[in-house]
Write a protein that binds this DNA or RNA. Structure first.
Lengths: 275, 275
DNA sequence: ACAATTTTGGAATTTTTATTCTATTACGTC
DNA sequence: GACGTAATAGAATAAAAATTCCAAAATTGT
C-alpha cells in the first residue's frame, strides 16, 4: 500500500494534517482507526504514550507504530516530538477560552459561537435542575403503551420532532412524523391505541395545537413538550414536559429540548424492549 | 527542612501552585532552582522528561526527583500525571458508559436525563475549546457570497439541516433544503453562484456525499459540517467545520452541532445585512 | 478454490526514562 | 576549626516505554 507516502516526515503540525488527510482514504481498517482517532485527538499526542493512544483508537500498539511510519516518521517518538514542541497548553479551562472567543470582537463568528455555547450550557443546567421526574415517568409510560407514536412539531420544534422520528425508527418503535408536507392532513392516521407526542414553543403553532386537540377529542393520550405549564398545549396533555430554554436573539438553542427528547426516546425504547 | 510538607500529593494544579508557593521559601539552593524553574515553566511539565526539566533548571536529575517528593508526590511520574490530565480533559469512554446504561436498562428516565445533559454539556465545552476560528470565518465568507444556500443533511444530521433552513428563512436568506422527500433529486437546482452546506457524520450518508461531490464538480463552494477532518466529506469542502460530539449507540446529542449551526446562520445573516 | 500478497496481533527485544542509593561535599553550630 | 547534620551529584538499578519481528489471519486477484 502507501509505502511511498512516507519518504520524509512532516515538519509542522499543518503538514501533518495535510498528509493525514491525503493518505487516510486508502488505508486498511486498523490504520484507518488510527488516522481517525489521531485526527480527532491530536492534542493528546503530546501527552500520551503509544499504549494509551492505541487503547483509545482500539488497536494494538504495533498498529499505531506502523501508522506513524506510514506518515513518514521513524516511529512514534519522532511524531510525538513534533507535537511536544508545538505544544502550548491551549485553553486549559473552558471559561477562559470562552472569554477569549468573545474578545475576538462583538458580532464576529467566534464571539457568537461563545454566546450560543453559553446559552446551550445554561439551558442544560436549568433542565437538570427543573426536570419533573414524575411527568417524565408518566410520559414514558404513555408512550410505551402506545401502538404507534405520532410526532408533531413545526418550525422551531421541527428539528426535535424529526430527530425523535429518527430515534424511534432506529429503535423499531412504530412512529409517524406529521410534517405537513404538501399540506396534507394526516389526522385520520390517529387511531385508537396510539399516542401523540406534540412539541411547540411560544408562539405556539396553530397546526400543532389543532392536532393535539383532535387527538384529545378522540381519546388518545397526548404528551406535550413545551415551554411553560401554562402553554395552550399543556391543557390537552396527559403528561407535560417543560423545557427551560435560553433564547439568544430570535433563536433558541434547543440543547435542552434535544437532551430531553433523546431521553424520552431511549427510555421508551428500553421500556418496550424490556416488556 | 520541609520534610513534613509532603504528606499527601496535590490533586489539582491549583493545589500544586499553592503548595509550591508555601514551601519555596526556606528551600536549599538546588531545590530552590527546581521550584523557580517549575513555577515559571509549569506548562512544560506535561511534555518533558526528568532529564529535560533538570537540564532547564540546571540541576542534576536526582535533585528534581527530590523536589517532586518534597511536594508530596511519590516521584516525577505522579507529578507529571497531574499536569497531563489537567490539559487533557477528554471524556473517558463516555459513550460506552451510556451504552451500558441503556442496555442494562438499570437507569430510570431521570438517570438517563442526567447522562444526556452531561453529554451535551461536555460536547459544548469541547466545541468551545476546539473550534477553529479560521475555518468558521471562511465558512461565513463562503455562505455570505452565495446566491442561494443549499442545505443537505440526512438521518441524524437532518434535524440540523432543517433547523438551518428555518433560521435562514427567518433571516431572509435564500436557502433550499434538500430533504429527499419523494426520492426527488434536486441536484439540478444547484446553480452557479450558489453554495452548499453539507452535514454528515459517520457513518456518512451516501446521498450527502454524492450531492457534495456534484456541487464540487460544478465548481460550487462546499462548506462541511462533519465529525473528523478525515471524513470523506472534508475532501470536497472549501471550509471544514468539525464538531466534537459524544455518540451513544446510534444517537448523538447534537448540542454542539446545533450551537455551531446557529452561529453559522446568525453570522451569515448579519454579514449579509451589513453588506 | 487456490496462491500470492497484505494486514494484523502479540511476544520478544531494545532503548529510553525514572528512581534509588551512596559516597562526597557543603553548611551551620559550638 | 572540628563535629554533626543536611544537601548534593552521579553512578547503579529498576521500571516503563518504544520498536521490531514473525507467525497467523485476512484479502485480493486469478
Amino acid at each position: 500500500m502507501n509505502e511511498l507516502a512516507g519518504s520524509v516526515a512532516p515538519g509542522t503540525v499543518e503538514e501533518f494534517r495535510e498528509r493525514l488527510a491525503a493518505i487516510s482514504d486508502g488505508l486498511p481498517k486498523r490504520l484507518r482507526q488510527c488516522a481517525d482517532y489521531v485526527a480527532a485527538n491530536s492534542d493528546r499526542i503530546a501527552v500520551s504514550t503509544v499504549a494509551e493512544l492505541a487503547a483509545g483508537a482500539d488497536v494494538p500498539p504495533s498498529a499505531l507504530m506502523r501508522f506513524c511510519q506510514i506518515l513518514g516518521f521513524s516511529g512514534f517518538s519522532e511524531m510525538q516530538r513534533l507535537f511536544r514542541e508545538a505544544y502550548v497548553p491551549g485553553w486549559p479551562d473552558y471559561s477562559t477560552r470562552l472569554t477569549n472567543l468573545k474578545e475576538s470582537g462583538a458580532g464576529s463568528p467566534a464571539a457568537l459561537l461563545a454566546e450560543f455555547v453559553e446559552a446551550g450550557r445554561l439551558s442544560l443546567e436549568a433542565l437538570a435542575k427543573s426536570a419533573d421526574e414524575a411527568a417524565l415517568d408518566q410520559a414514558v409510560a404513555v408512550l410505551k403503551a402506545a401502538d404507534t407514536v405520532h410526532l408533531v412539531g413545526l418550525r422551531r420544534a421541527f428539528p426535535v420532532a424529526s430527530y425523535l422520528a429518527y430515534a424511534f425508527e432506529k429503535m423499531d418503535i412504530p412512529a409517524m412524523l406529521h410534517d405537513g408536507v404538501g399540506k396534507l392532513d394526516h389526522r385520520h392516521a390517529l387511531r385508537s391505541g396510539d399516542a401523540l407526542l406534540a412539541i411547540t414553543f411560544s408562539p405556539y403553532s396553530e397546526e400543532t395545537l389543532t392536532l393535539a386537540a383532535d387527538a384529545r377529542a378522540r381519546g388518545l393520550p397526548v404528551v406535550a413538550m413545551t415551554d411553560r405549564l401554562t402553554s395552550p398545549l399543556a391543557r390537552q396533555a396527559s403528561a407535560v414536559l417543560t423545557v427551560p430554554e435560553v433564547d439568544f436573539g430570535a433563536f433558541r438553542s434547543l440543547s435542552a429540548t434535544l437532551a430531553l427528547a433523546i431521553t424520552l426516546a431511549v427510555a421508551v425504547g428500553t421500556a418496550r424492549a424490556g416488556g
